[in-house]
Amino acid sequence: MTARMEQRFTDVAAEGRPVLVTYFMGGDPDFDTSLAIMKALPKAGADVIELGVPFSDPMADGPAIQLAGQRALKAGQTLAKTLELARRFRAEDQRTPIVLMGYYNPIYVYGVERFLEDALDAGVDGLIIVDLPPEMDDELCIPALEKGINFIRLATPTTDDRRLPKVLENTSGFVYYVSMNGITGSALPEPALIAGAVARIKTHTQLPVCVGFGVKTADHARVIGASADGVVVGTAIVNQIASSLTEEGGATEATVPGVEALVRGLSAGVRAARAVAAE
């Protein structure tokens, strides 16, 4: 586990609140705006950054993230440029963990060894690769762990107690609990169900459990954050970006401030999650 990830979870836990994990698509709507968004996230209260790597065929994503990926690809984003985003961010912020999230093919084509070296060099702390289940650990998970990069796994409602140990075996950093079966951006299920699922996962692991899929508002963040170690917000941020763009999909003056305002609200939500005032 990279020291940065562990440190961040320890520090936030000491504040008595859940971690706020924020996702955005690298290169959406263009490289420079996306770098500005990335830099704005920690200032608005994000604790961990999930940096989306665009892919032409995002099978597990809903329309919002599909469109964000298409905008990024159209603007010329590549895996190499997404690593460059991380590197440029890291030059100014040495403490906020960066997790790359995407699909395996761009990494496979880039070359696993070369990718891991470049990711480590760019200051990347973890990977979430949607289409690499534990059965495929030899591909990227094991090599990443050997290099000291976290491999964060998704657990879902279909991951039963029989399967959980296998899913958790090589997971590091944190566990990302996907609160429903489905694609990103769907509706949020009952908080009680989520709390039960988090408790179930925690009987199998010491790792922090973050919950995502469906968290859209500060109130959601507060409710989920009551039981989880962290709250992941993705589609809401991507939608915020999309709503600020010109008809041609270009950035406007409202793009970065819009994300800042949303994340500030979400941050207030996680800070109210356990009725413990922080900061």
Binding site: M59, A60, P133, M136, T156, T158, T159, D160, V178, G182
Partner: peptide
Amino acid sequence: EDGRFGIFGGRFVAETLMPL
């Protein structure tokens, strides 16, 4: 048994689908 034909094949799917 992992569904591989040489380097090809495999099971590259989201966790939600894996149990199924």
